Simulated scan of single mutants.
Amino acid sequence: MTYFERLTDGLQLHEVAMFILGGLLFIVLLFLIVLFALRKRQLKPLLLFFLIPIVMLGWPSIAKIQLNQEGLTLVNNLKELEKHPDDEALQSKVEQSIQVLEEKNVNAPDKLADIARAKYLLGEDKGALETINKIPEADKAVLGVAELQRAIRATQDLERKLEKAKASPTPESLDILKITKTQIEADYKFSEHVRLQRYVNESDSLIKRNR
């Protein structure tokens, strides 16, 4: 993303327009002040007009600050939810932050990565993958979403095999589940994903009960 795209990311069209026009008006007024000063004309009437660009620049700036604060809130709540994945109050807060950010149509790769992690933790695998697809390929490795994408696929695969083994705990289904579980456990990068580890633990318990 360009600097301007990052600066205006999440702002509504009218807020972007206010930001641009406010900046242009501010520059024009500065030019007029210099011109008036050179011609030794009174500056006081002109100074009053500075209230207009200040308001026009201030409105989208406040909106941007609130948006960044919402993004920070999501990150903090996400960290807590990873520690307490069954906390319904935290789940509700994370869902609310996701809704706010998506309504603002944020496109910053780091914010999209946070949204994808949040959706995955909430069990919204499809939504998480759709969000990941919005992130440029060059940013995926840097932000760790390529690894998240692998974890989501692994979670879906293990969950599917776990449900099949629960419904029909035959030696064949349990062996398939055990092989998949062992492969996931061997990949240390997957250990940080709470949902995946939960399915690993459930699989382990099911296999032990049906020995």
Rank of each mutant, 00 (worst) to 15 (best):
F36E: 08
R39A: 15
K93M: 14
Q66F: 07
L162M: 03
L38S: 10
P45W: 04
T155G: 01
N68Y: 11
P45Y: 03
A165L: 10
S61V: 06
Q69V: 10
G127P: 01
D139N: 08
V75P: 02
R160V: 03
L162F: 12
E163P: 00
I132G: 03
L46I: 03
K161D: 14
A89S: 15
S173E: 10
L51P: 06
E163M: 12
A37W: 10
L129A: 02
K166M: 11
F50R: 00
E102A: 06
S92C: 04
L81C: 06
E103Q: 12
N105L: 05
P169K: 02
N133F: 03
V94Y: 09
H84D: 15
N133K: 13
A154K: 07
K104V: 10
A63M: 11
V34P: 01
A63E: 15
D87C: 11
N107W: 02
D139W: 01
G58C: 07
L158Q: 05
F49D: 04
N76W: 02
A37E: 11
N77T: 05
L51E: 05
T155R: 05
D157T: 09
A116N: 09
M56K: 07
V142H: 01
V34Q: 01
V145Y: 00
I52C: 01
L174I: 05
E103L: 10
A146N: 12
L81H: 07
E95P: 09
K83C: 04
S173N: 15
A108D: 12
L158W: 04
L38F: 09
E95K: 15
L57W: 05
L112T: 05
Q96L: 14
N76Y: 10
L74Q: 03
E172A: 12
K104P: 06
L32M: 12
T131A: 09
I135Y: 03
D139A: 11
R153I: 14
E103W: 07
L74T: 03
L81G: 04
F50I: 08
T170K: 08
L35Q: 10
R153D: 12
I65M: 13
L47M: 13
L81E: 04
G127L: 06
L177E: 02
K104D: 07
K79Y: 07
R153T: 15
A128C: 05
D125Q: 03
K161Y: 13
V55A: 13
K164I: 10
L35C: 05
L57D: 08
T131N: 04
T73W: 04
A151T: 05
I33V: 15
K93H: 09
R160W: 08
V106S: 06
L38E: 08
K134T: 02
K164R: 11
P85Y: 09
D110S: 15
P171R: 01
F36A: 15
A37Q: 13
L43M: 05
L48V: 13
K161F: 08
D87N: 15
A151P: 01
K126I: 06
K111E: 14
I33Y: 02
L129V: 05
L51N: 04
K44F: 13
D86P: 04
V94S: 04
P109H: 02
L47G: 04
T170V: 06
P136V: 01
L51K: 02
Q69W: 06
K164C: 04
W59E: 08
N133M: 00
L74F: 08
I176M: 10
P136E: 02
